[in-house]
């Protein structure tokens, strides 16, 4: 009994350690600037002044739209192309299959540190810096996504695919009409990982984007915070962060099981 109590005490203490900073942050964005550094957690009065200032100082909603746009296009593209590649690797016999598999495994070992600079130079040569192309195109395909789809497709019964072939369906029809409807779990997994990673990506946008109207949330909030525009007001920094984190909090509240299982199940995180 005593042991059980200690167990729960440790678990609850842990929960407080992970939750309290977020609670503090949420309340800090809706209290007067003066009180943020005070020792009290609860505000004397609620105010949206910090949010009002963020909205007037930076085009935060533009950044929000950019983030939604870039993340959605990349996620849709990764799902589409990964399922194609994964299907070919798992279910079709063709020359070059082994080469492709080995190439994917090889590229997954290459650290981004190695290709970052040359990739930026490629963007310059293509005249893609300060365009959506630079934000989107390099992320449109993922070798890791192909591997995940391949693994899932290997579990689909061959008899099903053979039957569809007998009915005269082409490989493309089989993939999109027969296999896709059965692939909800892997679509959710790859979708969540890709969307999260793109949504949270800060380094690559910092490299290729200078034009404020093209910035995504992580870059906009970073520049705002370290660039002096926030004028060391804590409330506005935290409010800007909150606007960026809120959609994720809400999505997580509803779908936390999918988030945890997708990210931990594949060993991928942002």
């Amino acid at each position: 009994m005593m042991k059980k109590m200690l167990l729960y005490l440790a678990l609850v203490l842990g929960a407080v350690v992970f939750l309290y900073p977020f609670v503090w942050m949420t309340l800090a964005t809706i209290k007067p600037e003066m009180e943020i550094l005070g020792s009290g957690l609860w505000p004397s009065r609620f105010t949206l002044e910090s949010y009002r200032q963020v909205v007037t100082k930076i085009p935060i909603f533009r950044a929000l739209l950019n983030s939604i746009f870039v993340s959605t296009v990349i996620t849709a593209s990764v799902l589409f192309f990964s399922s194609m590649g994964g299907y070919a690797l798992a279910r079709l016999k063709f020359r070059g299959r082994g080469l492709m598999l080995n190439t994917i495994l090889f590229t997954m070992m290459i650290p981004f540190q190695l290709t970052m600079i040359p990739l930026y130079i490629l963007m310059i040569k293509l005249h893609w810096t300060d365009t959506y192309m630079a934000l989107i195109v390099p992320g449109m395909l993922s070798g890791f996504g192909i591997l995940l789809f391949r693994q899932f497709f290997l579990t689909i019964p061959q008899a099903l695919i053979d039957a569809a072939r007998v009915d005269g369906l082409s490989d493309y029809q089989i993939l999109f009409k027969i296999v896709w409807p059965l692939s909800k779990p892997i679509i959710i997994t790859v979708g969540i990982i890709t969307f999260m990673n793109t949504w949270n990506e800060a380094l690559w946008p910092l490299i290729v984007i200078r034009n404020q109207s093209l910035m995504t949330m992580p870059q906009m909030v970073t520049i705002f915070t370290v660039g002096g525009m926030a004028e060391s007001q804590l409330g506005v920094k935290l409010a800007a962060s909150m606007i960026m984190a809120l959609p994720v909090f809400v999505a997580y509240a509803f779908f936390q099981r999918y988030f945890v299982e997708s990210i931990a199940g594949t060993g991928m995180k942002g």
């Binding site: 939750l19 949270n200 960026m244 997580y252």
Partner: peptide
């Protein structure tokens, strides 16, 4: 709860 910070951006 323990997993929550994992999905929040490093910027935030």
């Amino acid at each position: 709860v323990y997993f929550l910070p994992v999905i929040i951006s490093g910027v935030v």
